[in-house]
Design a protein around this nucleic acid. Structure first.
Lengths: 140, 140
DNA sequence: ATATACCCGACTAAAATAGTCAAGTTTTTG
DNA sequence: CAAAAACTTGACTATTTTAGTCGGGTATAT
């Protein structure tokens, strides 16, 4: 039960942007150097973040990305959603009355998995990007 | 971010055993028929459950498996642990002071992922197998 | 002009997943 | 005793997912 690296790197990169925010856009090159993530991979990630209106881009020299919302307003759940990282712990269809595991009724554990999803999603819903920056250790 | 089927089926199968408990052992064949899970796959799962002392086996005709603990005492986290389904949402080493993503210090989001792990694990720690059986729908 | 940096689809190697298969052993019952 | 039911175990495999890379763009500041 792991979060994929795309989601993890997305959160890292956006946290990086929040820390090194300024009036200027933050380039992927800088994020790459500071966080140790490949530029090529960051491009792929930021493409999704842009499409989902988490960041906006500035092209050309001195270009880069800018957070659309302030870190205080940006929910972690929004970031994960942008990367299709659904927190759907099992395969049962959430709302349908039938077809859990090919059976005609809800499987015996259906409600439990629903609870789990809610539990995890509420964690991401309630966390803002700014929450990650509190009490953080000094980095080199 | 999904739970694998082994874990899911393990919980389903054990819940099934709890429902259809009796003095007799429950055979994988019966669980397979009721829950729609391949016997061959159940065998693989129950091997781990047995090794981790979640169930004990009775061989021969009318054999099967028996829960070692009562459903009231069996934590879901014990089941997941038996199937190596660690709830470790990222790759950062939990306790080490170094080497998050190849950097010399904890990565910027390290503490956040730790919190997430704790959040999810506490859910599984606090749920007992018996909790899954409450208010369940009637199954065919 | 040209260097920098975003844009975007396609591709791929490696790992994980979700099983199956084969070849047993043990125990009950007729 | 023989046979069938049921557990035991390691190995194998097809499919899917993951974690990226590659190539060829386009936009813009200097």
């Amino acid at each position: 039960m792991k979060l994929n690296t795309k989601s993890r790197y997305a959160v890292m990169a956006l946290a990086d942007m929040a820390v090194f925010s300024s009036d200027n856009a933050v380039s992927l090159r800088d994020i790459s150097l500071r966080q140790g993530i490949s530029i090529l991979y960051l491009e792929q990630i930021f493409l999704r973040l842009k499409k989902n209106n988490i960041v906006k881009s500035v092209r050309g020299i001195n270009g880069g990305y800018i957070l659309v919302k302030s870190p205080k307003e940006l929910k972690i759940s929004d970031i994960l959603l942008a990367l299709d990282q659904k927190v759907k712990t099992i395969g049962c269809k959430k709302d349908s009355k039938k077809s859990c595991n090919g059976k005609s009724t809800k499987c015996i554990t259906h409600n439990f998995w629903d609870e789990l999803d809610i539990h995890i999603n509420s964690f991401f819903e309630n966390k803002k990007l700014s929450d990650l920056l509190k009490n953080r250790e000094v980095r080199i």
